[in-house]
């Protein structure tokens, strides 16, 4: 089937609610940092923005605005007990199997198969709360995550929006 047109649908939703038009991020080019070594030698981290938290932590608030919370998971302990709090997508499958959106167990298998070199000691969950403050993400939250990744000597990250 044809890909869903989310942009059109959200624009008309905003119009019908009488909201100001959503300010989409539109970029015309993108930077590229090449891998520093072959994939099969790389240490990989993952980030989900699907409102995933540990059962013993405060749940994400699906109604939050500009929530730049970033949870850090010990990757060896995953999946453990995780819970999803997000009302933007259907997470019934992911509630039963987190790998639908955050495939931490599949990454472990790819590491065992030698597709990647190793797994970061930490994976991440955050940036989920309807963020309208782009500059804070660019100037603060993203560089803070980059520093963490560098501390863990991560070679590349897989980012999974939801």
């Amino acid at each position: 089937m044809e890909a869903i047109r989310y942009v059109e649908r959200l624009n008309s939703h905003y119009r019908s609610q009488g909201f100001q038009p959503y300010q989409w991020t539109i970029n015309h080019d993108a930077p590229l940092t090449p891998l520093s070594r072959p994939l099969n030698q790389c240490r990989i981290a993952m980030l989900t923005s699907g409102g995933v938290s540990r059962c013993d932590a405060q749940p994400f608030n699906p109604q939050a605005r500009n929530d730049l919370r970033l949870d850090v998971f010990e990757s060896e302990a995953l999946p453990g007990c995780l819970v999803i709090n997000d009302d933007y997508y259907d997470h019934r499958d992911a509630d039963r199997d987190i790998n639908c959106i955050f495939p931490v167990e599949r990454l472990r298998e790819l590491s065992a198969q030698g597709v990647i070199g190793s797994i970061s000691p930490h994976h991440y969950s955050g940036f989920m709360g309807r963020i309208y403050t782009r500059s804070t993400v660019v100037n603060e939250a993203a560089p803070a995550l980059a520093r963490r990744l560098q501390e863990d000597r991560v070679d590349a990250a897989a980012l999974v929006p939801a």
Binding site: A3, R5, V7, T33, A142, A146, Q150, A157, L159
Partner: peptide, 29 residues
């Protein structure tokens, strides 16, 4: 933003049109 900080990234997206606008360094749809 991670890319400018030296971390290669790949985005795994289910929203093709949004990803086409955002133009992350690497996206698989």
């Amino acid at each position: 933003m991670l890319e400018e900080n030296g971390i290669p990234t790949v985005v795994v997206s289910t929203a093709r049109d949004i990803s086409a606008q955002v133009k992350a360094p690497r996206t698989v749809f």
